[in-house]
């Protein structure tokens, strides 16, 4: 058994496909990005090595910092709006028995299975000043003005609303699963001690959900950082880069502004930021709390 399980040739054949995919689709492009990041390549013609020029430009690029700020805002939106609602809804849903529970869970998750392409265009219509749903809803509540939701001042909030709305079901489902995994005996004990449902939620559900919350918050921060698709279709970073996100910005620089080299430099910094944030969240911040 031992001999067979340490046969080098067999091991190699088993990991080879995975390694090839990794090398070809992830490692090679990253290396290429690093190379182009040091050039002034426009996308066509010749690439000239310019050293750290792109990175120096990036260090003073306010649009890039706007995009990081927007990611931060989005993460805050996820954590302070989406997640608290998701936890509360999950807790209520947990107490609900029978058909209603399944129905609500299904309804909450439906937006998640719809393509971002559809979601983005649908919300463009919802925000439409002429026939959009949102202004009509406000009208139904008696507000008479017409709000331009995608104007320079409002656009970032409009983007945040779409993303919080779209991802709600996913977050809710994870919290719901976490709550379902809590031992019911604890609830019974709390009930015998005369605890009301608010106290039970605060003293039992929330503390026991801590690991789930940590995982969910980590994923939310990372997805806020990686956000691109919705913004690309909804506002494409505009108006005036107010809703810019890093991934969208590097794409624009490479394919619209023909600064392919600069786009790649942004890509490299973007990858580093994602790696650092992931490692920090997983190993430093949350690990310490557990100890």
């Amino acid at each position: 058994m031992r001999k067979m399980y340490s046969n080098k040739l067999v091991i190699f054949s088993l990991v080879l496909p995975g390694l090839l995919v990794f090398l070809f689709a992830i490692l090679a492009p990253i290396c290429l990005s690093v190379y182009y990041g040091f050039t002034d390549y426009s996308g066509m013609g010749k690439a000239t090595w310019i050293g750290f020029e792109n990175y120096k430009t990036l260090a003073h690029d306010t649009k890039f910092f706007t995009s990081l700020k927007n990611s931060f805002l989005l993460a805050v939106g996820f954590i302070c709006i989406q997640h608290p609602i998701a936890i509360i809804v999950a807790a209520i849903l947990d107490k609900l028995q029978g058909k209603a529970e399944g129905f609500f869970r299904c309804v909450y998750f439906i937006p998640n299975v719809i393509s971002v392409a559809i979601i983005a265009y649908l919300w463009k219509f919802i925000y439409n000043p002429d026939f959009g749903l949102l202004n009509n809803v406000l009208k139904a509540f008696g507000y008479q003005g017409q709000i331009n939701w995608l104007s320079a001042d409002n656009a970032i909030w409009a983007v945040l609303i779409v993303l919080i709305w779209h991802g709600f079901g996913w977050g809710m489902l994870i919290y719901y699963t976490g709550i379902k995994n809590i031992d019911p005996v604890l609830y019974e004990a709390a009930a015998i001690d005369g605890s009301d449902s608010k106290t039970t939620f605060l003293r039992i559900t929330l503390p026991l959900m801590k690991p789930v919350i940590q995982v969910n918050v980590t994923m939310a921060i990372i997805s806020a950082l990686k956000q691109m698709e919705t913004v690309y279709l909804l506002t494409n970073g505009g108006p005036g880069d107010r809703t810019q996100f890093a991934a969208n910005y590097l794409y624009q620089q490479a394919f619209k502004a023909f600064k392919y080299g600069y786009g790649n430099a942004i890509g490299v910094v973007f990858i580093i930021i994602c790696l650092v944030v992931t490692v920090l969240l997983n190993n430093v911040i949350f690990r310490q709390e557990e100890v």
Partner: peptide, 18 residues
């Protein structure tokens, strides 16, 4: 670890080089 690293890499950063 190498194969799992892919989880941390933002997909959209590979759009240009790919």
């Amino acid at each position: 670890t190498l194969l799992l690293m892919g989880m941390m890499i933002p997909i959209h950063a590979t759009l240009l080089p790919n």
